[in-house]
Write a protein that binds this DNA or RNA. Structure first.
Length: 111
DNA sequence: GTGCTGACACAGG
DNA sequence: ACCTGTGCCAGCA
């Protein structure tokens, strides 16, 4: 396997290695469980929460984007309706009030 | 290379 | 609960 070199050009549809890795991690999150943006970067051992958010904003549509949320269990504006419909279907535990995911119970341990 | 933009996180108020 | 400022950084024009 040859590492990505500076000569590799990413055409339409191609993703950077970081973006590809972020999507891989999200793909492993089990149904009913979630990960915060920061968690994804941590499990990846690369990047930071904001970078993960950037990737999700651009390419998240290809994966289970609703399983990645903010550190306080809330969902970014504009995504709530679709996300909470998923949580109901997956049985994702929510906090009292139902406006946020209960991270203490829904956070995926990576196993 | 330069300069925004934004699905973040955290500390304060 | 809401807003502001600071630090952060991938993607893109």
């Amino acid at each position: 396997m040859v590492p990505v070199s500076t000569h590799d050009r990413r055409g339409v549809g191609e993703l950077t290695r970081f973006a590809s890795q972020v999507l891989d991690v999200v793909d492993r999150i089990p149904s009913g469980r979630v990960l915060t943006y920061g968690d994804v970067a941590e499990y990846l051992g690369e990047g930071r929460a904001r970078g993960v958010g950037t990737v999700m904003a651009r390419y998240g549509g290809a994966v289970a984007w609703w399983r990645v949320l903010r550190a306080d269990g809330s969902v970014a504006p504009g995504l709530q309706e679709r996300a909470f419909a998923r949580y109901a279907a997956e049985g994702t535990p929510l906090r009292r009030g139902g406006s946020r995911v209960d991270l203490s119970r829904a956070r995926w341990d990576g196993r």
